[in-house]
Computed example of a mutant assay.
Amino acid sequence: MTDELRQRLRAVRTEVGKAVVGQDGAVTGLIIALLARGHVLLEGVPGVAKTLLVRTLSHALELDTKRVQFTPDLMPGDVTGSMIYEGGSFVFREGPVFTNILLADEINRTPPKTQSALLEAMEERQVSVDGQTRRLPAPFLVAATMNPIEYEGTYTLPEAQLDRFLLKLVLDVPPRDTEFEVLRRHAAGFNPRDLTAAGVRPVLGQAHLAEAQASVSRVGASDDVIGYTVDLARATRSSPSVKLGVSPRGSTALLAAAKAWAWLQGFDSVTPDHVQDMALPVLRHRIQLRPEAELEGVSVDAILRSILAQVQVPI
């Protein structure tokens, strides 16, 4: 059954590819986040198919998805839901967070008060309104998008919220051949708002996804691999270019993502290679550089690659 689940998830990537061209790494990252019960931050300039990617993945997985456009005037109740007076009494009206995949579009355009409305949902899979706690559907994943170029009218995401994203995936502008294929599909009549017409089929339901998540939780990790994961996280805290290194939640997230990646590749236990493969997407948003390092043009990814080269790998 485990092999069949892996095959179905490979088929999901094939289905997403019918609508989204050239973002295989982002598709894999979203699948890893679902398997590890995490959330994803998607960073890229407008027009690189971030929204289409999330919608298509939801369709292929038969998961409910809702989109929220984060704006400066968005209120917490617009996301979580609120009490309204109806029929002579107050009743709770669910917000868009009550879904399987919440697409938080341009999450950094809303004030911290509204951003913080997602903290409980992301960590506890529940929301508390009017003194009552309500569970969110399972699975639940927040896929938040950010524009890395535009700073006017945006707010910095709090460290507490950044730390709750399992992965930060960077979607680059595609190369020429990929962009050519995108235009060729549109010239042939591709409609991104009609995924069924594009041939995208649901290939994995919620029950199968829950089985896959359970299988991932059984993937083993030796003490050497756990120690290696801890050493990588600790190395970020002692780097001279880093003001704030990776927290213990970050090292836990790195191991969880490595287990999901190992399972996808057919392994029963995590190897150092799996940890290394997931280090950049799991850790890059959990590090704050010192101002002098930023002025020198040092990137977080470059620091992480240097740490990966320096920390001793267990044999």
Rank of each mutant, 00 (worst) to 15 (best):
T2H: 07
L5K: 11
L9N: 02
R10D: 13
A11L: 06
R13S: 15
T14H: 14
G17R: 08
K18A: 13
K18Q: 15
V20A: 08
V20E: 01
G29K: 02
A33V: 11
L35P: 12
H39C: 07
E43V: 10
G44T: 13
V48F: 02
A49C: 05
V54S: 07
H59T: 13
L63G: 04
G81F: 02
G88A: 08
I107L: 14
N108D: 06
E123Q: 15
R125S: 06
V129W: 02
T133P: 02
R135P: 00
A138Q: 15
M146R: 08
E152F: 09
Y155M: 13
Y155Q: 12
L157Y: 04
L157M: 12
P158V: 10
V170Q: 06
L171Y: 03
P174S: 07
A188Y: 00
P192T: 10
L195S: 12
A198M: 06
G199E: 08
R201G: 05
P202D: 12
V203S: 05
G205M: 07
Q206C: 12
H208D: 15
A212E: 09
S217Q: 05
G220T: 06
S222F: 12
S222H: 11
D223V: 15
D223A: 15
V225K: 08
D231P: 00
D231S: 15
R234E: 12
S238H: 10
S241M: 13
G245N: 07
G250D: 09
S251Q: 00
T252E: 09
A256S: 14
A260S: 08
V282W: 05
L283A: 13
R284Y: 00
R284L: 04
I287W: 11
I303C: 12
I303N: 12
Q310I: 00
